[in-house]
């Protein structure tokens, strides 16, 4: 029975954390403007808008292996994007995880901005518009005023990404010292019968998720205090 060295456990944990933080950041960069646009307090009410809301809602339940399969078909050597040579590379893993978290971020913001009986969001929107906030100024002010919602979206996205296994396995290939993460290692070690290692990694994964969540909450509280 092969056991994993401590340095490798740290290396895998570090990679998992790095992948998850990078993907969370990218998902927020795209998802926050999209979420605020979709969750506009005075929706245009077009069919396209309603369709987008339904689509984003449906994509939050997207099976990760399905997304993994699509990405695999696109980026495999014979696929239309095969020439980019990204399959089994960390970049594609982060890209896939970003795609996975994106609907969650957008949907979380949309739901938060459309809470029944919440007139404060509309009041904020009207105040910004009437005082002349436009484009980036409007978006930045919205993010600042609705920061608990954005932190919530970040926490949700990070949790979803950190616990991801199917997609990482399919597009990352679980390559040692390259694309192997904590979840794929747990799956591998369990299949090998190395249960103590799998359990240890599982505990580490939960501890890491807890630590990052506490950190996010701390940031949020500091920001509220600075008000």
């Amino acid at each position: 029975m092969n056991t994993i060295a401590w340095y490798e456990i740290f290396e895998i944990s570090g990679r998992s954390l790095l992948f998850a933080l990078a993907a969370t950041l990218f998902a927020l960069l795209v998802g926050v403007p999209a979420g605020f646009a979709l969750g506009h307090p005075r929706p245009c009410g077009s069919t396209l808008h309603r369709l987008l809301v339904s689509l984003v809602g449906a994509l939050t339940a997207l099976p990760t292996v399905t997304l993994g399969l699509v990405l695999y078909l696109l980026f495999s050597r014979s696929g239309p994007l095969g020439f980019l040579d990204l399959l089994y590379k960390p970049g594609l893993v982060i890209f896939g995880e970003t795609l996975l978290a994106l609907p969650l971020v957008i949907h979380h913001l949309y739901s938060g901005l459309h809470r029944p009986g919440d007139s404060r969001t509309l009041l904020l929107h009207e105040t910004l518009i009437t005082l002349g906030a436009q484009g980036p100024g409007y978006l930045w002010a919205m993010i600042r005023e609705k920061s608990p919602l954005v932190w919530g979206a970040a926490t949700l996205a990070f949790g979803r990404i950190l616990g991801e296994v199917g997609l990482v396995m399919m597009v990352g290939g679980n390559i040692r010292f390259f694309t192997r993460t904590m979840t794929t290692t747990i799956a591998l070690e369990t299949s090998r019968g190395n249960l103590p290692e799998a359990v240890l990694l599982g505990i580490l994964l939960v501890a890491m998720a807890l630590a990052v969540n506490i950190l996010f909450h701390w940031f949020q509280q500091q920001e509220e205090k600075m008000g």
């Binding site: 009041l123 105040t127 008000g227």
Partner: peptide, 22 residues
């Protein structure tokens, strides 16, 4: 759409105004 660095045409003040963080 207001040209950059221009005042808004019309400003509406709510009866229960919204105050920004800060």
């Amino acid at each position: 759409s207001r040209a950059p660095n221009r005042s808004p045409f019309v400003v509406y003040v709510h009866p229960t105004p919204y105050l920004f963080k800060g």
